[in-house]
Amino acid sequence: MSEQAGNALPIVLIHGLWMTARSWDRWVEHYRAKGHEVIAPSWTRRGSTQEAACR
Rank of each mutant, 00 (worst) to 15 (best):
M1F: 05
M1C: 04
M1I: 02
M1R: 04
M1Y: 04
S2F: 12
E3H: 11
E3M: 12
Q4T: 15
Q4D: 14
A5Q: 15
G6S: 14
G6W: 14
G6Y: 14
N7Q: 15
N7P: 00
N7I: 05
N7K: 14
A8I: 04
A8G: 06
L9D: 11
L9E: 13
I11H: 10
I11L: 15
I11A: 13
I11C: 11
I11Y: 10
V12S: 02
V12K: 01
L13V: 04
L13A: 06
L13P: 02
I14Y: 04
H15Q: 07
H15C: 06
G16N: 02
G16E: 01
L17F: 06
L17D: 02
L17V: 07
W18G: 04
M19T: 13
M19L: 12
T20L: 08
T20P: 08
T20G: 12
A21Y: 02
A21S: 15
A21T: 07
A21N: 13
A21I: 02
A21M: 09
R22C: 05
R22N: 09
R22A: 10
R22L: 05
S23D: 05
S23A: 12
W24G: 00
W24A: 00
D25E: 09
D25K: 09
D25G: 03
D25H: 07
R26F: 00
W27Y: 03
W27H: 03
W27M: 01
W27C: 01
W27L: 03
W27P: 00
V28Y: 02
V28H: 02
V28M: 01
V28W: 01
V28L: 01
V28F: 02
V28D: 00
E29R: 00
E29P: 00
E29V: 00
Y31N: 03
Y31I: 08
Y31L: 14
Y31T: 07
R32E: 15
K34I: 06
K34L: 15
K34T: 08
G35L: 10
G35T: 11
G35A: 08
H36S: 09
H36I: 13
E37Q: 15
V38F: 10
I39P: 00
A40W: 03
P41D: 11
P41H: 14
P41C: 15
S42Y: 06
S42G: 04
S42M: 04
S42C: 10
S42N: 15
W43M: 11
W43P: 01
T44F: 05
T44R: 14
R45H: 14
R45N: 13
R46G: 02
R46S: 14
G47F: 12
G47Q: 15
G47H: 09
S48K: 05
S48E: 07
S48T: 15
S48N: 08
S48W: 02
T49H: 11
T49W: 10
Q50M: 05
Q50R: 07
Q50D: 06
E51N: 03
A52K: 03
A53R: 10
A53Q: 07
A53P: 00
C54T: 11
R55E: 13
R55D: 12
R55T: 10
R55M: 10
